[in-house]
Structures are given as C-alpha cells and as structure tokens.
C-alpha cells in the first residue's frame, strides 16, 4: 500500500469528524475549567459509557428480569412475575437427547441443530483454514492474489452470501445442471433436511474461512525461519517438519481459532436464515432463530421465554469467551 493512498483514506474518514472537533473545542475548554484536568478522563469516557450502559449493561439486567416474568406485554411493569417458570418450561424434557420428548421441542431442536452444526462447521472450518494457511505460507507465486481470493467472502454480507449460493442450489440452478450433465438426477437441496444442513455448514465455511486463515497465516509467519532452515540442512522431510515444528508452534493460534469459531458458530443465524429460512421444517433452525421467532415473529410474542433462552445462550457464550481470553492470554505470553 502506498503512503498516499493510506493518507487519502485516513483524511477522507476523518473529514466529517474534524468539523465536530472544532465545534466542541470551546464547550470542552469550559468543562475542563469546571472539573479540572483530573476530571477530564471521565468526561472523555462519558459518551462511550453512556452507550454501554443504555444498550448493553442495563439490557443485560432487564434480560434476567424478563426471563423471570410471563405474559405478552413488552413493558416490564405490565408483566407478571413468574419465577423460574420459563426456565422450567424450557427444561421440561423426558429425554434431553431427543427433542420430541421436550415440552418446548423447538428450543431443543434448535440446540440439537446448533450442536450438529458447530461440530461439523468448526471442525471443517479449522481444517480448511489450516490447509489454506499452510498453502499460502509456501513459496508460491502471486501469493497476495490467492490470499485475496480466499479472504474476500469474509467481507460479503450474510444476505449476499446466502443469495449467491441459493441461486446456485435451486432446482434449476448451476449445480443441478452440472449433476444432470454427469447423468445424475436433480437434487432438491432445500427439501431434504440432510442436504439443507450440509449446505448451511458449507456456505458458512465458505463465507468465514478467510478470516481464520488470516489469523493462522499470521501465526505461521511468526514462526522463526531459522528453525525451518536448520531442518532443511538436516534433510528433515516436510511431513516431519510439519508435525515437529509447524504444528506445535502454531498450536496456541489454532486454539484461539477454534474457540473463536465456536463463539461465532453458537450464534449462527444470518446466512442460514436467508438460505434455508430454518427449513425444511425446523431442520436448520438454530438457537438464535428460536429466540428471534419466539420474541418477534410469533402471533403471541413470548418475550419472557425468549429472554430465558437468551440467558441460556449467554451462559454458553460466557463460558466460551472466558476460555477464549484464557487461551489468547496464554498465546500472547508465550
């Protein structure tokens, strides 16, 4: 990247902000006279903390409160206290492994689907990201181009990703044309639950692989080159080099990638919602879609139940994020 382009981009991004800065100079000089230099950090923090407070911290508490109430009203004052009723309803299951035996089978179907999804999605996502990163780290021509090829889907919106693939997978789409040309029958991908799940997994890997590849590639490039040179001088085979040098040194990064992919995978919604709509039936309905449907698309909007389900989801994410922090810290401290 040339310096001029860098500068131009930066100036462009800063232009509207700069106008604001000038306008705020006098009022903030006045504020500084009031609170003194020692009070200024709080002044600088105030807007950001206000946003955090209003849109994250307070909602978090309201969420708990909601999950303990029943009824269909949105305003907490109109809702009736229900204790742990919502949780009891969610967890009323004869056999947790079989969603049909649960009173709220849609919730458990969502959990079950999400579990299947992340098991396959995360394993293959990590596998393909690793292979891609290894290939891109080799001495290949036009590396920048190939890196861009694998990376660009990351920037596409989930709606665009889903529509691109939906168009290919339709009954008269490109893939079926290919199958017919091979002498096979057309497959109705969105009518079969297994195929729908397969494509949900495939498309989400296609869309997100580049992100994890980049992290792993950065990790690969941080491995000291003299280790490889020494191995080469010793005539060590490439397979051995991979298992004895690359993999152990990349392992901390690989762990970070796995946990990050898990965190994203648990929250899967956008692409699959546009691609399959959760169908056929509930075959690709995940936890987030369950929450969304329960709270916002049903005739009777069940905010309490949705809140309880989000508390469950939040707990899972909390545990995963703590793991992520621990793993990242371990990686960065060596």
């Amino acid at each position: 990247m040339t310096a001029t382009l860098k500068e131009r981009a930066a100036t462009l991004a800063a232009l509207p902000v700069e106008f604001l800065f000038r306008a705020l100079e006098t009022p903030l000089a006045f504020v500084q006279r009031l609170v003194g230099v020692r009070g200024m950090p709080w002044v600088f923090l105030l807007p950001n903390l206000a946003f955090f407070g209003i849109f994250v911290v307070i909602p978090l508490f309201i969420n708990f409160a909601f999950s303990l109430t029943g009824g269909t009203a949105l305003y907490p004052s109109d809702r009736v206290y229900a204790g742990t009723e919502q949780y009891a309803f969610l967890f009323d299951c004869e056999n947790f492994a079989d969603p049909i035996t649960c009173r709220e089978d849609r919730f458990w179907k969502g959990i079950y689907n999400t579990a299947v999804f992340i098991f396959f999605q995360v394993s293959f996502l990590v596998l393909f990201s690793l292979v891609t990163a290894l290939v891109l780290n080799m001495k290949i021509r036009a590396r920048g181009f190939f890196r861009a090829v694998f990376f660009f889907p990351v920037l596409l919106s989930p709606v665009v990703v889903a529509l691109i693939w939906k168009w290919i997978l339709l009954r008269d789409g490109l893939l079926n044309a290919f199958l017919v040309s091979l002498g096979l029958d057309k497959i109705l991908f969105f009518v079969s639950p297994e195929w729908a799940m397969f494509w949900a997994i495939f498309v989400s890997i296609w869309a997100h692989m580049g992100f994890y590849t980049l992290i792993l590639l950065a990790g690969l490039q941080a491995i000291p080159p003299d280790l490889y040179e020494a191995a080469e001088v010793d005539g060590t085979s490439r397979e051995r080099v991979f298992f004895r040098i690359t993999l152990p040194l990349l392992w901390p990064n690989l762990l970070v990638v796995i946990v990050l992919a898990l965190i994203k995978g648990v929250q899967i919604f956008d692409e699959v919602f546009v691609l399959t709509g959760g169908g056929p039936g509930t075959a690709t309905q995940f936890i987030v879609q369950y929450i969304y449907n329960t709270a916002f698309t049903q005739q009777v909007q069940n905010f309490g139940l949705a809140a309880a389900a989000s508390v469950v989801l939040g707990t899972v994410l909390f545990v995963l994020t703590l793991t992520q922090l621990a793993v990242t810290r371990k990686r960065d401290n060596g």
């Binding site: 955090f52 209003i54 994250v56 307070i58 909602p59 309201i62 949105l74 929250q267 929450i291 709270a295």
Partner: peptide, 29 residues
C-alpha cells in the same frame, strides 16, 4: 486515574455480550 482498571474490565466484559444475547431488552430500550 482511579477506576481505570475497572473501566477496562467493563470494556472487556461488554465484549462478551453480543447483541444476540440481549435482543429482547435492547428492543425494549
């Protein structure tokens, strides 16, 4: 300043709360 670490903890804490977890209450707000 006093409280700086507490604020940093809050920032990291909010990192853990994606919008998917608080859809209903943010909708209320």
């Amino acid at each position: 300043f006093r409280g700086r670490n507490a604020i940093m903890l809050l920032v990291i804490g909010t990192l853990m709360i994606p919008i998917t977890v608080i859809l209903v209450p943010v909708y209320l707000v």
